[in-house]
Simulated scan of single mutants.
Amino acid sequence: MLLPQPLTRGRIVQRYKRFFCDLVLDDGREITAHCPNSGAMLGVNLPGQGAWVSYSDDPKRKLAWTLQLVEAAGPDGTGLVGINTLLPNKLVAEALVGGVIPELVGYASIRPEVKYAAASRVDFLLTDPDRPPCWLEVKNVHLSRSPGLAEFPDCKAARSTRHLEDLAAQVREGHRAVALFVVQREDCEDFQACRELDPAFAAGLDRAADAGVEIMVWACAMSTREIRISRRIRSPHEAFVA
């Protein structure tokens, strides 16, 4: 998907109250940008890190600027990391329509935000007359603390753990269920649950996989113009296919 253009580069001063980030743009302007990420943003919220923001002239907005990308050190130098948690669902929608993920092609209908379980909405429900429905939950990944390794979550994620339980319940009903982790960075080859930061989620992911929930992890191609889901990376919960 194309990012709002043009993006403007600056450096992070501080990220605070979850949804605010102060930056100094490369031209010297000091701004406060909306930060569309409620997580801890470990490794992508450091003062002095390069960052890219978009601008909107919509008069209804409280903040005209939005933080989109952060520059983070990786094994091959500094790379772009997408921190906007609103984008993965859009990226997956494009990938589903474009047939990018082979295991998810061929469904007649793709419905977003469908209510299910006691108090949840699944990100996508894929249906087809000739096969069981597929309940697809999408998670955004930006954390990488070791070279080449992507991790989720970067803080306690009770809601995400509940989503895994909801997916497992669908499998018990005879349906198909998929947890798709979208890694908004290019420098990772492997993925694992972050047991240190949220052991409950890590255990929940193990249980979900054992129950038959399919775990898929796909990394993105990143630029200041476009982000797109591009390649599968390794996960301990699925056989790796290059």
Score class of each variant (00 low, 15 high):
Ser120Met: 12
Cys155His: 13
Val141Arg: 00
Glu151Lys: 09
Ser144Phe: 10
His142Thr: 13
Pro153Val: 07
His142Phe: 15
Ser120Pro: 00
Lys139Phe: 10
Arg131Lys: 14
Glu151Cys: 09
Lys156Tyr: 04
Thr127Arg: 08
Pro147Thr: 04
Cys155Gln: 13
Glu151Gly: 06
Val141Met: 02
Pro147Met: 05
Ser120Leu: 13
Lys156Glu: 08
Leu149Glu: 07
Val122Tyr: 02
Pro147His: 06
His142Ile: 13
Asp130Arg: 13
Thr127Gln: 13
Phe152Leu: 10
Cys134Arg: 05
Leu149Pro: 06
Trp135Ala: 06
Ser144Trp: 07
Leu126Pro: 08
His142Val: 10
Ser146Trp: 04
Phe152Asn: 00
Asp123Pro: 14
Gly148Met: 01
Ser120Lys: 09
Val122Gly: 02
Leu125Thr: 04
Thr127Glu: 15
Leu143Gly: 04
Trp135Val: 10
Leu125Asp: 07
Phe152His: 13
Lys139Glu: 11
Leu125Ile: 06
Ser146Thr: 14
Glu151Ser: 13
Val122Phe: 04
Asp123Cys: 13
Ser146Gly: 04
Phe152Glu: 05
Val122Trp: 02
Leu126Gln: 06
Asn140Ala: 15
Leu136Asn: 05
Glu151Asn: 00
Val141Thr: 08
Arg121Trp: 04
Cys134Ile: 01
Phe124Asn: 07
Leu125Met: 11
Gly148Asp: 03
His142Ser: 15
Gly148Ile: 02
Arg121Leu: 07
Pro132Ala: 15
Asp123Ala: 12
Arg121Ile: 05
Ala150Cys: 02
Val141Ile: 14
Asp123Tyr: 10
Arg131Glu: 12
Ser144Ala: 14
Phe152Asp: 05
Ser144His: 14
Ala119Lys: 12
Val122Cys: 08
Leu136Asp: 01
Pro133Ser: 00
Pro147Ser: 08
Pro132Thr: 10
Val141Tyr: 01
Asp154Ala: 12
Leu136Gly: 04
Asp130Glu: 15
His142Asn: 11
Leu149Cys: 06
Arg145Glu: 15
Lys139Trp: 03
Pro129Gln: 00
Pro132Ser: 13
Asp128Arg: 06
Pro132Met: 08
Asp154Thr: 05
Arg121Asp: 06
Asp128Leu: 07
Arg131Thr: 09
Ser144Arg: 08
Val122Glu: 02
Glu137His: 10
Val141Pro: 08
Val122Gln: 00
Leu149Ser: 03
Leu136Glu: 00
Val141Asp: 02
Pro129Tyr: 04
Lys156Ile: 14
Val122His: 00
Asn140Gly: 15
Phe152Cys: 08
Cys155Ala: 13
Gly148Val: 00
Glu151Ala: 11
Pro132Phe: 02
Cys134Ala: 09
Val122Ser: 01
Ala119Leu: 05
Arg145Tyr: 10
Phe124Ser: 07
Cys134Gly: 03
Ala150Thr: 06
Ala119Thr: 12
Glu137Met: 12
Cys134Leu: 11
Arg131Tyr: 08
Ser120Cys: 11
Cys134Gln: 02
Cys134Pro: 00
Pro129Val: 05
Lys156His: 10
Glu151Gln: 15
Asp154Ile: 01
Leu149Phe: 12
Ser120Tyr: 09
Asp154His: 02
Leu125Glu: 14
His142Ala: 15
Phe152Arg: 01
Pro153Leu: 05
Glu151Asp: 10
Gly148Trp: 04
Val122Ile: 11
Cys134Asp: 02
Val141Phe: 03
Lys156Cys: 04
Leu125Lys: 09
Ser144Val: 09
Leu126Asp: 06
